[in-house]
Design a protein around this nucleic acid. Sequence first.
DNA 1: CGGTATCCCCCAAGATACTG
DNA 2: CAGTATCTTGGGGGATACCG
Lengths: 125, 125
Amino acid sequence: MKDECKGDYVKLKDKVYPCSVSLTMDLVGGKWKAVILYHLIDGKKRFSELCREMPTVTEMTLSLQLKQLEKDGLVSRRVFGKKPPIKVVYSLTGFGMSFIPVLESITKWGNQVVNEKGEFVNGPS
Amino acid sequence: MKDECKGDYVKLKDKVYPCSVSLTMDLVGGKWKAVILYHLIDGKKRFSELCREMPTVTEMTLSLQLKQLEKDGLVSRRVFGKKPPIKVVYSLTGFGMSFIPVLESITKWGNQVVNEKGEFVNGPS
DNA sequence: CGGTATCCCCCAAGATACTG
DNA sequence: CAGTATCTTGGGGGATACCG
């Protein structure tokens, strides 16, 4: 039963998806993952830096999402120091970097949408 | 990278997002929206066709997601007939079509991932 | 500093049954 | 044919407090 490409299933780490779009959305979908990856495009960042750059995400959610991204191999986490002033640095892995073109595509479209139908705002207030 | 104002907020229909990536994920994120749009790339489809092409989505969820996509202006819904053998056709709007490049980018990346780390499967399971 | 531990709410999404 | 109507559940995501 040879279907078209669209009908084929794809499998990654014991999870089966109906198509590669579905797989992508599982890896980088959700409310924050793509945003996090976007903020890591320009290099490694500390946890607190990410917090500052994404003030609308709670620490807990950020931590959780980072962990999932790390588990899926998109982000790497390196720890410096052992006593309470610890330093943790996150960065894109090679795999994560391979996603940059998609992120740029997403950003570009989002900006277009805002330009045509929305508006840019300058403060949280 | 031209977009240096990553800290700016964007607004669309009374909703405020921390960045355009966040906006995009709100419009086409979730488990199925992007998949639905993907299946509409090659032209208009009836509800039952979409059901058949996406057997892992329930009718209810499909209906719900289509309604949201319609509300956000990405998909158009046209009804033919008024008595029980009704025919409803869904298609991408111009706005929806503007998202095709992003979908292609997503598909391409997903396929790469499967090629390098996963596998293609031919049957359901 | 960089998280966890809890607790909680909401809603996406599924199952099943029914209808104009 | 193309959906609704309910009901249920899982887990994403937030708030707050605390810890190594």
